Structure formats: C-alpha cells, structure tokens
Amino acid sequence: MPTKITKNIQISLLLVATLGVMSGITVVSSLPLISHTFSDIPNIEFLSKLMLTIPSIIIALFAPFAGHIVDRWGRLKPLYIGILLFVLGGSSGFYLHDFYSILVGRALLGFAVALIMTSSTALIGDYFEEKARHKFMSKQGLAVALGGILFITSGGLLAQMHWSYPFAIYFIPLLFLPFLLKSLYEPEKHKHSDDPELETKLLPVYITAFFVMVLFYMLPTQLPYLIVNTLGGKPQTIGFVIATAMMFNALTSMQYAKIKARLSYMQIYAATFMLFSIGLFFISQASNITGLFFATTPIGMAFGLLFVNTNAWFLSQVPPRKRGKASGILTSSFFLGQFSSPLLFEPIVSSYGIQGLFLLISVVSIVVSLVLFVKSRI
C-alpha cells in the first residue's frame, strides 16, 4: 500500500471512527432539558434516556445483518450509505420537535451506525497487519477520545441555547464525505468459507464487548441526572465532566501499542477494571461537582484502553473472509450493551440512587479485576 495513500486512508478511518462516539454522547447534555420540555409525557425522565439507547438496540439487532451486507457488497458502499443515513437520522432532533418523531430519527441513526461501524472495523482488518494495526488503533483511540471531547463540549454549550441545537452537530459528516470518497479503496474480496469453531472462539470477545459498553454507558445515562438533579450543576457542566474523562481517555489510548507490547490482553483488562473501580468509588462519594473531577482521571484512563483492547483482541482472532459478519456481531454486542445499560441499572437506581449504583459497580469491578489478574498469572 503506497505511503501517500496510507496517510489519507488513516485520516479517513479516524474521521469515520469519531462517528461512533458522535452518535451517542452529542445529545447527552440535552437529556434533562428534553425531559423538562416534554414534561407532560408520562415517565419522560426514563423515556428521554431512550434518545441515547434507541439507536443502540437498532444497531444491536441490525449489525449482524449489516455484517452479511459488508461481506457480500464490499466495505465502501455500506459505509457511504450509512453516513448519509447518519446525517439524516441524527439531525432529526434539530428540525423535528415532536418527541416520538425524534425517536424515529434516532432509530434511523441506529441503522446508519450499524453499517458504518461494521464497514470500518472490517476495513481496519483489511488494510493493516497486526503490528501496524495496534499502532493505528492507538491513533483511533486518540481520535475517538478527542472527538468525544469536542462533541460533548459542543453539545453542552449548544444545549444552553436550546435543547435541539446539539442535533445540528450530526450534519458534520457531510463535510468530510468527499475526502473519504477520494481516499478509501475497496479491499480485495475474500472467498467465503464456513468456520463453526470461530463463533465459539469469539464468544468471550463478544461478551466482553457487551459488558464494556454496559459499564461505559453508566456515564452518559446516569451522570447528567446526578449532576443536575442531585449536585445542582448546569447542562454545560455535564459536558465538561465527561470531556475531562475523555481527555484522559485520549492520553491513555495513544499509548496502547506500547502497553500491548508488554502486557497481554487479559492483563490490560485487569488493570483497566482496577482503574474503573477507583473512579466509580470517587463518584459514589462525591458531594459536589468538584468531587466528580477526581473520578475523571482513572475512569478516562480505563476506557482509553478498554475499547481499543477489545477491538484489537477481536481483529487478532478473525480471518479476512469472516471480518464482515464477525464485525457485525461485535458491533451488535457493543450496542446491545449500550441499550441494556439504563435498563439493567434502573432497578438499582430506583432502590439506592445513582451514587449507590456507582458504589455497587465499583465493588463488582474490583472483584473482576482481581479475578482477571489471578487468571493472567496462572
């Protein structure tokens, strides 16, 4: 692959990677405002969280099918169709002001992200060999984190003006679509062959991806209500707290290739769950907004490694001929976890409050970390 093309390809894939984080956290700061605006709708506080999770369940259901499309049609056509649907569905909240119509737009966003994430994951596997892939995925983790900082901060500032303004951010992919069309090329197609043992081999990866996202989405679905309703913060505060965590996410993920050269996948997981537990404990004990910022360092560092490590582990296991289908199932696992997060945690929040939830999961995380550490030593 020529060096000049490689640079453009990397930039293109990094831009595409930011769409995954844009799909969710961009409108996080609007959630409390949406629940106030549509307060006449029963259970609106819970329903407003579906703005984040409706795309997730659509992605979870559609992504395996998207994987078959990517294997059959190639990587680029589904990618470009997905980007156009992403813009249309994601921006719907900007020009539609009926709550249920916006939820339909969020569902369309889910179809789009399924195509985008499945195609882009397969492309990364096609374009890069393992060592080069680890280096690229360090850059990808950095790009996702920086994108998260930009989108969550911008969304928070725009939400201050009106709850619908953050939805305008979804028009951004139209700006870099021409560059993608110019830079990316369709990889060589691989002959399909059945491999029943592969699905069993990948099952631990899929389960890990599910729980990683269940934990990650505690932040955008629970923190806004803790900050605004319990600690008396403003909508832009939500953006600043999560963006600070994303900054540490960026700093850590860019070191992934160096860390992976020294540690196994399981050892990296053990370290990240330890960091995550520490951060959750800080949140559970916070009595003011300042206390939340102490949690951003370990939580950001943990998620800076969790996502990159999961994707790298996955791609190390999958042969080229199965990347489309397997990438679809991985995407489904991630976003099924995203959808499930508020549903799984709602009974705990109802009984013990949001900070009680964070304390409980902190204890669970430290146990998981110790188990993984012992297993990695054995």
Rank of each mutant, 00 (worst) to 15 (best):
W73C: 01
G93Q: 00
L103G: 14
A112H: 14
L96C: 02
F65A: 13
I102R: 08
D126T: 00
F176P: 05
R75C: 10
I152E: 10
L198G: 13
L177S: 08
G156K: 11
S183L: 15
G93N: 07
L123S: 11
L174V: 11
I152N: 01
P187F: 04
Y185T: 09
I81N: 03
S193R: 11
P173T: 14
G89A: 11
F111V: 00
E186G: 10
D98A: 15
G93S: 00
H97G: 05
K135F: 09
H97F: 04
S101M: 07
G147I: 08
E197R: 14
A112P: 09
G105W: 09
A145D: 07
R72I: 02
L115A: 13
K191V: 02
G89K: 03
I172E: 05
I169D: 02
K139D: 04
A114R: 09
S101T: 07
T121E: 11
F128E: 00
A132K: 12
R72A: 02
A143C: 09
L123M: 04
A107L: 01
W163L: 04
T121I: 03
A143H: 15
Q140V: 00
Y165G: 08
Y185I: 05
F151D: 04
G147V: 10
V104W: 04
F136D: 00
L180K: 02
L180D: 07
S183C: 08
M117R: 04
L175H: 01
W73F: 15
G156F: 12
H134W: 10
G74A: 02
L79E: 06
E188K: 13
L150H: 03
K189T: 08
G125V: 02
I152P: 00
Y95S: 05
G148I: 06
R106F: 08
F99R: 09
I124K: 12
W73N: 06
K191E: 15
F94M: 07
L184D: 08
E186N: 13
D194H: 09
H68F: 06
G125C: 10
G82D: 15
G67P: 03
L123F: 05
G90H: 14
G90M: 11
L146M: 13
P196T: 10
P78S: 11
L84I: 13
